[in-house]
Design a protein around this nucleic acid. Structure first.
Lengths: 349, 349
DNA sequence: GGACTGTCTGAAACCGATTTCAAAATTAAT
DNA sequence: ATTAATTTTGAAATCGGTTTCAGACAGTCC
């Protein structure tokens, strides 16, 4: 198609509409927002012209005037990770349903970026900020970040997944303890006693909570806690792979592996296969997050799900409630459930 | 942490800074933007105050005044798909490097949403729009969408992946023909002649191009084109699974399967395994996109890669060039390359 | 018909930046 | 010391909406 010169065609404004309709801009604005009544015939005339030009009011001007942008900023650690992507999309849908839109800021796990993204969202005058994952989950939160967050909380509601007590934010967190309880009951119920945990970092709150629950569950069932059964990692496939390699070299191999997420589990699956063992006949694997990765792998993973739609809606509803000044719980919980698939089974004799 | 009432603390403006520094707002603005020189002592005084309050100018006011927001809107079909997510992130990084920021609009493949997202981005006064995937790829593009796009092109540069000739957009497209050439040469070089193609829809331009190249390559090598070796699908794991099931029921099973993307390939892998066959000893599988999925599966997938960083940078550079009124190629190509992994091998005898 | 009430409407101020324009303050030149 | 040339500076206009305020208009009631 031939490309005419990008002609910077004058964008049409509310004043243009007003002039053509023979009314004032105020009246057009009233029709647009429905904030006050306008004589029927005028209203229809104006609407016709709006329609004709497909006029859409400038969001910048509107936001400047309103001091509300009807926009929620979402900071995600890395949108390429399906866990964050799923949660982001359900936030987006929940926000839309409530008449808000959502702007994404990707921190990519870089501390400096995370601070910049906060600045960026504040400059954009978002009405609230939702942070999913990232720095807020870190036990050793950086001070400049916490300080910035504290500042922001003075003017803008902040809702985070996980928990942070260095700034007055609202939180919607996964009940990690319960999630691990469910997994351990599942595995122990299948006869497993040699249970390993692989792929996470203990300085991350969510992982730390899971670890504690892991230990508690073992104790409760009178099973000895073995240090060499817990292997740290970086939440990626390689971590799961290398961690599992180590586990399989132990004189007493575990019969079940709890991976910190589906990515780590994929690595575990690979390691097990390379050792000539079968899942779940020889070793069971279970993980957290139930992203689509769990469904793609062979065998399909048994994994902990959080009902992402509901999770996202809780985050958004909380943000909007605080925006509107309604009373809201400071700390809410998302309840996990187990999706049983092909990767777990009875412990070998 | 105790939650003080969200106190709507007056957000600080350029006027507040000006007053405290004993200068006019104009002067503060000049310091902020560096648009004109300011006496050194004053400048330092002002900077100190800006620093002290960590003042960041209101992006809405700035955009309104400038009529440029230094923002590029990106419409992606579904950010949960790792192909789009990777491309989005590299667009984001390229934009940042050029002093722009990026706002994501997720169409989720819903036609109506796609049109709304265009409106939304225009209301936000983005300086350009990049559309990755989605409606623009569709051969039977909807008219209301094309019309809107044509309208937008009058005022705002639009860059799309794929090609569309119903609106004067710029395009950066993958050389699909070349991509399929590479795959076919790879497979035929390994001795394969019974080659199937699975998982895509022929009304999608990119798939159609691949199909044509598939046929050409077979002909070139004097291999008969068999209709039953091409099975449509919806780009997801289930399509790959069911399509491969059909292929394996044929009296003459293929020895190689070209999946339309890594998702479809994951389904193919599952089907093959369930039929008691091995990859790549009995059947080779190769796919397009080289998302991380390719690296997670066992065996790891041989897949076509596009160098996402470069791809994203081309999209953004093109958008920015058009914004700046520089001359730019209407149609650019991204060259594919094969990443050889574990899922392809010599044809069985 | 006049007073009163309620509904519509436009002018003007405002949101918070940038930029133009002309005046004020410096500096350089003679 | 004057005048000319520069550099700095602030007032005011602008971007495109919303909202307040007060006046215009229409309808109701006596």
């Amino acid at each position: 198609m031939e490309k005419e010169k990008l002609n910077t065609a004058k964008t049409i404004t509310i004043y243009d509409i007003a002039k053509e309709a023979g009314v004032s801009a105020s009246t057009v604005s009233r029709v647009l927002t429905g904030s006050a009544s306008v004589r029927k015939e005028k209203k229809e005339r104006i609407q016709k012209i709006i329609e004709k030009y497909n006029f859409k009011p400038n969001a910048l001007a509107k936001g400047l005037s309103d001091t509300s942008t009807k926009t929620i900023g979402v900071i995600a650690a890395d949108i390429r990770n399906p866990f964050y992507a799923s949660l982001f999309v359900s936030c987006e849908l929940a926000a839309e349903a409530a008449g808000y839109s959502v702007v994404l800021a990707n921190s990519l796990g870089v501390k400096e970026r995370e601070v910049n993204q906060l600045d960026y969202l504040m400059q954009q005058r978002v009405d609230a900020i939702i942070q999913i994952g990232g720095r807020v989950d870190d036990l050793v939160t950086d001070d400049s970040y916490a300080e910035k967050l504290r500042d922001i909380c003075k003017t803008t509601p902040v809702v985070v997944t996980g928990k942070i007590d260095k700034a007055p934010v609202y939180s919607v967190s996964i009940n990690q303890t319960k999630a691990m309880d469910i997994i351990m009951e599942h595995l122990i119920g299948l006869g497993h006693e040699k249970i390993a945990m692989v792929g996470g970092l203990m300085r991350v709150v969510s992982t730390y909570n899971k670890y504690n629950s892991y230990v508690e569950n073992l104790k409760k069932h009178g099973i000895a806690v073995k240090g060499e059964y817990v292997i740290n990692g970086n939440y990626d496939p390689v971590s799961g792979y290398e961690g599992t390699n180590k586990l399989l070299e132990l004189s007493e191999q575990p019969t079940a592996i709890v991976a910190i997420n589906d990515f780590a589990a994929s690595g575990a699956l690979r390691s097990i296969r390379e050792h000539g063992l079968r899942v779940p006949e020889d070793i069971s694997v279970v993980s957290f997050d139930n992203t689509y990765t769990a469904d793609i792998l062979s065998p399909k993973l048994t994994s902990i799900d959080y009902d992402y739609d509901h999770f996202g809606k809780m985050l958004v509803d909380t943000a909007i409630a605080v925006i509107k000044g309604q009373k809201t719980d400071d700390n809410q919980m998302v309840e996990p459930r187990l999706v049983f698939r092909e990767s777990t089974g009875k412990a070998p004799d």
